[in-house]
Design a protein around this nucleic acid. Structure first.
Length: 292
DNA sequence: CAAAGCTCCTGACCGC
DNA sequence: TGCGGTCAGGAGCTTT
C-alpha cells in the first residue's frame, strides 16, 4: 500500500506530465470510490490548468488555476497509469504504470477516473483502484479540509526528536499506534512504522509517553532515514502494488522485519526471532529480543 | 477528550 | 478444479 515514499514516487512521475497542462476532459466511471466524488467534480476540473502537483502526507495535492485544490488519496490499492494518446487508432497506446516497478496490468474494470490532459497527443491519466479505499476531493481556495489535522511532514524541519517527544508525552497508547496517527506525524503507514521502531530498538508495545527524549531523537532520525531510503529506492511495493505474477518490488527485500515473521533477527549477534503481533487491528512485526 | 473498535473493499492465498 | 473462508490495511466514523 502506498505510504509516504510511494506517494512521493507517484507524484514525481505525474508532475512532469500534468503540471502546466489543462484538464481537457474528466471521465468518472462511477459516482463514488471510498467517498462520493464532490459535487460538480467534472466541471470544476475541466478547462482548469494544473499549476503544481505536490505531496502532503499520503495525499497528492494539485493546485488548480481556479484557486481550488484537487486532493487525491490512493488508499490501499490506488494507482495511476499514464497512457500516451495516439492519433493512430490501429495502435494500442503505450502505457506507463506509475508504480515503482513494472508490475503488470491493471484490470480496466477498476479504472474509476480518467483525466485527459491538454497536449498533442493528449496524455490520459487513469486512476485505477480495485479496493476503492482511495478518494478525491476538491478544496475551495483557502479551505484546508482534511489537511487541517495532519501532523508534521516527517522529512521536514517541522519534525524532530523534541517535536515528536512533545506529541508523544500526551499519549498513553502504544508507540506503534501513535506513529500511525497522522496527527502525530503525517505519512507513515504500517510498514515504515515497524521498520523505524525496529531500527530504533524500541518495542512497539511501549507506552508513547514513556518513550524517552533520547529515544525520540533516535526514532525521528530513523523515521527520516527509512523514508529517505525508500524514496531513493523508488518507493517500495507490496502485494497491492505488485503484478498478477506476484512479483515484489526490490525495496521489499530491504525490509528487516515487515513480513518476516519467524525469520532470524537481522541484527548482528541478536538471537531473536521476528514475531508478529496484532495492535489495534494491524499486524506488528518486531524482534522481542532487541526491541526493548 | 482519548482511545479502542468497526467499517469499507477486492484479490491473493489457503485448505479441503 | 472449484469453492469458501481468512487476511491485508488507511482513515473516517462510532462507541466506550
Amino acid at each position: 500500500m502506498p505510504e509516504l515514499p510511494e506517494v512521493e514516487t507517484v507524484k514525481n512521475g505525474l508532475a512532469p506530465i500534468m503540471e502546466g497542462r489543462t484538464f481537457k476532459s474528466v471521465l468518472l466511471n462511477r459516482k463514488d470510490i471510498r467517498f462520493p466524488f464532490p459535487n460538480d467534480f467534472i466541471t470544476r476540473l475541466e478547462g482548469k490548468t494544473l499549476i503544481r502537483l505536490t505531496r502532503r502526507a499520503k495525499f497528492l495535492v494539485a493546485e488548480l488555476s481556479s484557486g481550488e485544490t484537487l486532493l487525491m488519496h490512493l488508499g490501499m490499492s490506488g494507482r495511476f497509469t499514464i497512457e500516451a494518446g495516439t492519433d493512430d487508432p490501429g495502435h494500442a497506446p503505450r502505457s506507463t504504470s506509475l508504480v515503482p516497478i513494472d508490475s503488470g496490468n491493471t484490470n480496466p474494470k477498476h479504472d474509476h477516473v480518467i483525466f485527459t490532459m491538454s497536449g498533442d497527443p493528449p496524455p490520459l491519466i487513469i486512476y485505477n483502484d480495485p479496493r476503492r479505499f482511495g478518494f478525491m476531493e476538491l478544496l475551495e481556495k483557502g479551505e484546508l479540509g482534511r489537511m487541517k489535522d495532519l501532523g508534521p511532514e516527517p522529512l521536514s524541519n517541522q519534525f524532530s526528536g523534541p517535536i515528536l517527544r512533545d506529541a508523544l508525552t500526551k499519549k498513553k497508547s502504544p508507540i506503534k499506534t501513535a506513529l500511525l496517527d497522522q496527527r502525530v506525524v503525517a505519512g507513515l503507514g504500517n510498514i515504515y512504522v515497524c521498520e523505524a521502531l525496529y531500527d530504533s530498538k524500541i518495542s512497539p508495545f511501549r507506552k508513547s509517553c514513556d518513550v524517552s527524549q533520547d529515544e525520540c531523537e533516535t526514532l525521528s532520525h530513523e523515521i527520516k532515514r527509512t523514508l529517505e531510503a525508500a524514496i531513493k529506492a523508488g518507493g517500495s511495493t507490496l502485494k497491492d502494488f505488485a503484478g498478477v505474477d506476484g512479483a515484489l518490488g526490490y525495496f521489499q527485500h530491504r525490509f528487516k522485519v515487515y513480513g518476516h515473521e519467524e525469520h532470524a533477527c537481522p541484527t548482528t549477534g541478536c538471537k531473536g526471532t521476528i514475531t508478529r503481533a496484532k495492535q489495534s487491528g494491524r499486524s506488528t512485526f518486531y524482534c522481542p529480543h532487541c526491541q526493548i
